[in-house]
Nucleic acid binder design. Structure first.
Lengths: 165, 165
DNA sequence: GGAAAGTGGTTACAATTGAAACCAATGTTA
DNA sequence: TAACATTGGTTTCAATTGTAACCACTTTCC
């Protein structure tokens, strides 16, 4: 690289944008790095995509959920859930049975195999999280928790009430 | 919804995973909410995708960059940059000229029009960020900054040294 | 100076994703 | 009980994205 503008003293107008300090950008880079690393870890071991793993994570704790329940729980959309469910069925990680009370509704659960895999992924996931958290002090962990909560509410408000202006 | 498992007292085994408290998951939801809202705001106004806007944001501060320089600056990959550049050229938001010293290299800059659009987006972006930040106290803003830095380093280390175990 | 290796950038193709249309079952209204 | 609207879930099609192959130019090293 011949011209290195990175460190150049480019005039920074008062209203230039410093991307590397711009919160939405930083969140996006951080989230992608983390998700990709983890997805890679259990994706290769168990042939799971992120959406599929999320479905399993919910079913592991809350049995007898329908696809619609999952949509609500995970904030993923219908189509993503539908695809995740069908790939999990193909792997025999979950079972599906008709709800006699409402024949549109399909009740989902982890299969034996699914529970097995779940039991092996959970510690793995926790290990990754712990490794991330280990870079923070105890106080920082609490701070992060409450900060995320606040930012989430704010961003949620955008979606509900419409955007700024 | 008839069966509400959300609030049900499902037995939570000690090593169940609480997705809603799982940091990677929370980061992903937060980042998607924020990015989508903002992309929507300037996407519809100026026909910009997120990668394209990022390219403009960098060129606004650092003129005369090549695509390779942009790759380094933004942590996006070659192909994404190439596509963003070609869409920006189509919109006449940027200009491209050959570097006489190295004829593989293309020097990029905002066009008049591009500078115009840039000048209008920057305040918009800043407004969104300010709105997000307004949900945090001053101390929290500082905390967030340093926390992100630490998490980023950690996740970066995964990518470089390989994953855990 | 000429092969081999490296770099800047684009293209091609496959996999992922999202929006909208759709089917089937249920609920509602009259 | 016939029409209409709603809900659960899947399919279809187009747009986005990622990986790998590729072309053109430049550098290196004998």
């Amino acid at each position: 690289m011949t011209t290195d503008n990175t460190t150049a003293t480019a005039a920074l107008a008062p209203d230039d944008l410093r991307l590397e300090k711009f919160l939405p950008y930083r969140l996006s880079v951080l989230s992608n790095r983390v998700s990709n690393a983890i997805a890679d870890a259990y994706g290769t071991r168990f042939h799971l995509t992120i959406p599929a793993w999320r479905v399993m994570a919910i079913l592991g704790r809350f049995p007898d959920m329908s696809a619609a329940d999952l949509v609500e729980q995970t904030a993923m959309d219908k189509v993503a859930i539908s695809r995740a469910v069908s790939s999990l069925l193909k792997n025999d990680y979950i079972t599906r049975s008709e709800d006699p009370a409402d024949r549109r509704r399909q009740v989902l659960n982890l299969s034996e195999l699914g529970r097995d895999v779940y039991a092996r992924i959970v510690p793995l996931a926790q290990q990754y999280e712990a490794d991330l958290m280990s870079s923070l002090s105890i106080e920082e962990r609490g701070q992060l928790d409450s900060i995320i909560e606040k930012l989430m509410d704010r961003a949620q408000a955008w979606a509900e009430r419409g955007l700024i202006d």
